[in-house]
Amino acid sequence: MPGKYQHIGNFHRDNRFLENGEKVWISFKTLNNPMIHGELRSDGVSSQGIPMVTGSESFHVQHVTKNTMTVKYKDGIGEYTRKFVAPQLEYSAIHNSRKSVTSLDVTPGGLGVSADSEGKLKVWETSNGIVRRDLQGHLGDVYTCKFFPSGVVVLSGGADMQLKVWSAETGQCAANITGHKAAILDTVIIERGRNILSSSKDGTVKLWDVGQKSCLYTYEECGGNVNCCSIGIPNKNIDLGQPETITSDREVQTEGKLLLIGTEAGSIQGYGLQTRRKVFDLPCHGAVNCCCILSENAAVCGTQDGYITVLDLRNIRVPLKELKETRSAILSFSTHNNGFFVSTGDGSCFFVNELCNTTTELTGADCDHIYKVVCDNTHVYTGCRDGQVRKYSCSQAGL
C-alpha cells in the first residue's frame, strides 16, 4: 500500500543542512493507519563536506549529498522511499519578501515571468534572478502570467478583468483585451498564440482572437467561478462532436482539441474546443483549483480539500486514481516526462510518476503556500507565499 512522507522541517535552509546536533521532524502515514513520527538529526559534516544525518524510529537515511537526501521507512507491510531535494538557488530580490509570488512561468531560453500579491509583474533571468523588465499596467492582483511559445511575449490576466499581451524585450503592452465581467483566474495559449483562452470568476471561459482583440466564443453555464483551464489533443476514439456552425477564419488550430475546466462548485468539465460540445461533467471532492491534460488518454485535477484525481478520458465516470498526499489545497501542476509536479498549500511540492507514486519532494518552503510550480525540463521553479522563487535541478532530483 502506498505511503507518504510529511513535511521534513527546514531541510537545506539557505542551501545548507542543519547545524551539528540540530533536528527536523518527519512523519509517515499509510491509509487508515495512524501517523508515525520521527526525527532526523544532523551529526555534522564529513571531510568531503557532505552532511551526516541519522534517523530515529524506523526512518533510515540512505544517501545524502549537498542538495539531496533519500530517506527510507520500513514497517511490517513494506519499505517506502522518498528523495528530498533542496533548491539550487533562491531568488528573494525579484519580489518583496513580504508579498506572495502568485503566478510564474519560465522559458527554455532563460527568461522567467512572475507576479506577486501586490500586483507587480516582472520579467527576469532564470540563471541569476536579475529583473530585466517591470510590466506595469494591471490594476490590482495578477493571477496568471505565461509566455507565448516564442519565449519573448507574455500573456497576463487578473483582478482588473483585463488580459494583457506584453513584449518581454521592451516591457511594452502590445494588446489589452477586455470582455470578462469578473477577475481572470487562468489562461491557455493555443499553439503559436493567434488564439487564447481565459477562465474567470464570471463563470465563463472565453476564446479570443489576439490580433483583433475580439471574443470568438464564450463557454457559458459552467456552474460558477471557473478556476482553471487546460487543453490537449485526446485519443481519436473520444467523441468531441461536430461543430454546429461554421467557425470564423480567425479561429486557428482548435480542431480536435479538448478543453478541460475546473470550477469552484466542484466539477471538472470537458468540452470540444472547436465543437463547443460538453463531453463530460464529473463531480469532484471540492472546489477544483487546477487541472491539466497529461496525455491523449489522461488528465488530472486538484481540489481545495487536497485530493488529486487522475482521469481516464476514455471512461470519465470512474477516476483512474485518487491521491491524497496532504490535508491542504492542491494549487498547481506542471508536467515533466511521464509524470507531473504538484504544489500545495502546506508548503509541500512533490513529483508523481506514471504509476501515480510520489517519488521526490522539493524542500525549502517550510509551511508556506506554493502557489505555482513550473518546469522547463532541466529545472523546476516554484513561487511561494514567502516571496521567494526557488530553482531546483531535475538531474539532482533524478527526474
Rank of each mutant, 00 (worst) to 15 (best):
L139M: 05
H285V: 08
M1V: 02
C173K: 08
R82E: 13
R41K: 15
I189R: 03
T126R: 04
T382R: 06
G38H: 10
M52S: 08
K99G: 02
Y307K: 11
K29A: 12
L207Y: 10
L273W: 05
Q48D: 14
G137D: 06
G112S: 07
R41T: 15
F280G: 04
R390E: 05
G112R: 11
C222T: 07
C229Y: 00
S198F: 07
A365M: 03
L258V: 05
M161I: 02
D43E: 15
A182G: 04
M52Q: 14
N10L: 14
C394Q: 06
T358C: 15
L323H: 05
K206I: 14
G286F: 03
S200I: 04
I94S: 08
G76M: 08
L155H: 01
G140F: 03
C291E: 06
V252M: 01
E244P: 00
V288Y: 01
I308L: 14
L258Y: 00
A265W: 03
A86L: 06
K4Q: 10
F28S: 09
I231R: 09
P2D: 12
V188I: 02
F350H: 13
L104T: 05
L240R: 09
K324N: 10
S198P: 07
N237W: 00
S114N: 03
G119C: 04
K99S: 13
D209Y: 10
T178D: 05
C375T: 13
Q6I: 03
F84Y: 15
Y392D: 11
V389E: 04
G347Q: 01
G3D: 14
V61K: 02
R250M: 09
F148E: 15
N225L: 01
A183L: 05
R132K: 15
I308P: 06
D312I: 10
S334L: 11
S199P: 01
R250A: 13
R82Q: 15
T247Q: 12
Y219S: 07
V154F: 05
Q48W: 00
V205H: 01
N10T: 13
K201C: 07
I190D: 14
E90I: 15
M69A: 14
R192A: 13
G286T: 00
F341E: 00
I8Q: 11
L135M: 04
Q396W: 06
L207S: 12
V123I: 13
F340P: 13
S393W: 07
W25K: 14
C291D: 06
G286E: 09
C173G: 09
H12T: 11
K236M: 03
D312M: 08
A115F: 02
N338G: 00
L294S: 03
L155F: 12
C349S: 10
V113Y: 04
E90C: 13
W25P: 01
Y91M: 11
S343L: 07
C215R: 00
F147K: 06
N337G: 01
